[in-house]
Design a protein around this nucleic acid. Structure first.
Lengths: 89, 89
DNA sequence: CTTTGACATGTCAAACATGTCAAGTATGGA
DNA sequence: TCCATACTTGACATGTTTGACATGTCAAAG
């Protein structure tokens, strides 16, 4: 997710979704496990839609997912500007 | 944004909004400047609502804002792993 | 072959984000 | 005071996310 400057909506959603799935699987969790851990009502339908990039989730939904996965929200964006600055225009 | 585990929706939205405003002002930009730099149609109304935490923005909207502000998306969440102190709670 | 688990996908309704315009507030300067 | 800039707030239409449920697919197990 380094050169985000020219990214389109569909690409962003796919990347975020893939990242969420990656984290979830690395923790050995099923979508249902995440749903159960999330605050408020949710079912796996929405998690599936988010992971496949078919929906444009709100920040609160992403927040609840990051809570359930026990990672900071920044992890969902997999941002590592380790060596450079962002988009020096 | 420490101890996010017990945060409620309204608090999350207020924090993110405050952080966006903080970054925007640190760059000497007006809401209108951000709107103009953002992809797609937008005016300052939505930016105002997001900054005041009155709406729950989608990830794509936050993405466009981070682009306009020329910061990585993680900056919008004020990740504290870097140099600042950790979770003083 | 049937069952079970995990996930994708379709539909529906309710709630909500966004975009747009208009009007209001506040501040600072001429 | 008047005017301009910056931002907030209300109302509304439009589109989309979300939650709920049903169904489809696929693989593994029995």
């Amino acid at each position: 997710m380094s050169n985000m400057s020219s990214m389109e909506k569909a690409d962003l959603l796919k990347l975020v979704g893939k990242r969420i799935k990656e984290i979830r699987e690395s923790k050995g969790l099923a979508q249902l496990d995440v749903a159960v851990r999330m605050e408020g009502n949710i079912d796996t339908t929405n998690i599936s839609r988010i992971e496949s990039g078919r929906t444009n989730p709100t920040v609160y939904t992403l927040f609840r997912i990051s809570q359930a996965l026990e990672v900071p929200m920044s992890d969902l964006f997999n941002i590592e500007y380790s060596n450079s600055m962002q988009d020096e225009v």
